[in-house]
């Protein structure tokens, strides 16, 4: 088996006295999708932010294609160009129209010229069902459309891996489906991804492995069927039972 795309070794991260990650180990192989589940505050988002170097880790190492990316000497911009991040709150650029949201990174960060970038952006936007909306401002789109633009923006530069941070949590229930369809579409192409999610059914369907984060530790990880239906750890069982009671699983 080839080396993992993302490798996380003993990562810890604290905000002041609050330890959010207490030593996490995780690997994401090429073409693999790993879903992280866990309660709010369990460290899912922080872990994703650490991988994209939006947070400095306190201890441990993170590797991207076997190269350490968490040393202070590393070119952070170069690392981020190889990763595509989708945020929970979309974080689209409201002053730019849809296509410029996508091309900004291609033109400024990559070495793509304007025309090439536009062509590339049109293609990726069409792929996520956004043809005809290219010149609209993000404010004029529904939440589901905005999140699909955000996915297109993150994917346009063909990153080595996608990091999806609860991409459906800010959406009205009827809009969740279209965003999940976009993620499924990436999945069918074999895009390597690490996603934090609250959608258990989706995690089961789309992920090769599901990991359960609890209070900053990855308590267990395994194939979805095993982790979601036959969890070994009492905390995992408790978490899944609570979800079941809330009607979310």
């Amino acid at each position: 088996m080839s080396a993992p795309v993302i490798e996380i070794r003993g990562v810890t991260k604290a905000f002041g006295d609050l330890e959010v990650l207490k030593g996490v180990d995780l690997e994401v192989a090429e073409h693999e999708a790993v879903a992280l589940i866990g309660a709010s505050g369990s460290g899912k988002s922080t872990l994703l932010r650490c991988i994209d170097l939006l947070e400095d880790i306190d201890d441990g190492d993170i590797f991207l294609d076997s190269e350490v990316i968490t040393d202070p000497s590393v070119d952070t911009v170069g690392v981020r160009r190889k990763l595509g991040v989708v945020f929970q709150a979309y974080n689209l650029f409201p002053h730019l129209n849809v296509i410029d949201n996508v091309t900004l990174g291609l033109v400024r960060a990559g070495d793509t010229n304007r025309e090439e970038a536009e062509a590339q952006a049109l293609k990726v936007l069409a792929r996520f069902g956004l043809e005809g909306r290219e010149r609209e401002r993000p404010d004029n789109l529904s939440g589901g459309q905005q999140q699909r633009v955000a996915i297109a923006r993150a994917f346009a530069a063909r990153p080595r891996a996608m990091l999806l941070d609860e991409v459906t949590s800010a959406l009205d229930p009827e809009l969740v489906g279209e965003v999940l369809r976009a993620v499924r579409d990436l999945r069918s192409e074999g895009v390597t991804m690490l996603l934090a999610t609250h959608e258990m059914g989706f995690a089961k369907e789309v992920a090769d492995r599901v990991g359960f984060l609890h209070e900053g530790r990855l308590l267990e990880i395994g194939p979805p069927a095993q982790l979601l239906e036959d969890p070994q750890e009492p905390e995992t069982k408790k978490f899944l039972r609570r979800l079941l009671e809330a009607g979310r699983a």
Binding site: V77, R80, L83, N91, F93, G105, R108
Partner: peptide
């Protein structure tokens, strides 16, 4: 919002 700067950084700016 700081998320704007972060979104900019995340696309490689």
């Amino acid at each position: 919002h700081p998320g704007q700067r972060e979104a900019g950084l995340s696309i490689g700016l």
